[in-house]
């Protein structure tokens, strides 16, 4: 099932601060990772992510090469902490809830990959747009377009409420 969602550019608003709260944070210099654990909430503008464990993976080199660097930065592909430190992936495990523009998506775990500009949720996936609900095993969102694809080993179930706007 393919749907248009409001998750385009999720987490890539370069003009708004990112607020992160958690019980604990562990920064592992050698692995270039920062792991938030316990009631983790990440907010940026009207986008929010909630989970119980969030691993922030920074890109190895600051940016591969000057020209690509400029392209990646100006195209705003990934939220970069100031000082050109690029976040390449967010890995959320343990009941993930994503909210954006009044739409929500939940799943067992999820990955936001800023290198490929995709968002994926896996396991018990539910996507809710207003009164419309789609469930399946896997949700993949192209963050360039906001187009989401829901897949399931069994059947994807779509619940459309009469008079509600159809997911196009």
């Amino acid at each position: 099932q393919q749907l248009q969602t409001g998750f385009a550019d999720f987490g890539q608003d370069q003009s708004t601060p990112i607020e992160i709260e958690a019980d604990a944070l562990e920064v592992q210099d050698k692995k270039n990772t920062a792991v938030f654990t316990g009631n983790v909430t990440v907010r940026q503008g009207n986008a929010a992510l909630q989970t119980s464990r969030l691993t922030v993976v920074y890109s190895q080199s600051a940016l591969p090469s000057p020209d690509k660097a400029t392209a990646a930065t100006t195209s705003g592909k990934a939220p970069s902490t100031p000082g050109d430190q690029r976040i390449s992936r967010l890995e959320a495990t343990g009941e993930v809830l994503l909210e954006s523009d009044g739409q929500t998506a939940t799943g067992n775990d999820g990955v936001i990959d800023f290198d490929t500009n995709t968002l994926a949720l896996n396991g018990n996936v539910t996507l809710t747009q207003g009164d419309n609900v789609v469930t399946g095993d896997k949700l993949t969102v192209d963050l360039n377009t906001g187009i989401a694809r829901v897949q399931s080993t069994g059947r994807v179930r779509v619940l459309l409420s009469p008079g509600g706007n159809r997911p196009n």
Binding site: Q14, P17, I18, I20, E21, L25, E26, V27, T81, P82
Partner: peptide
């Protein structure tokens, strides 16, 4: 480096 007993971080836009 481990922060605990509640962590709140704000990353300002570049």
């Amino acid at each position: 480096i481990r922060f605990s007993d509640g962590v709140a971080i704000t990353i300002n836009p570049a």
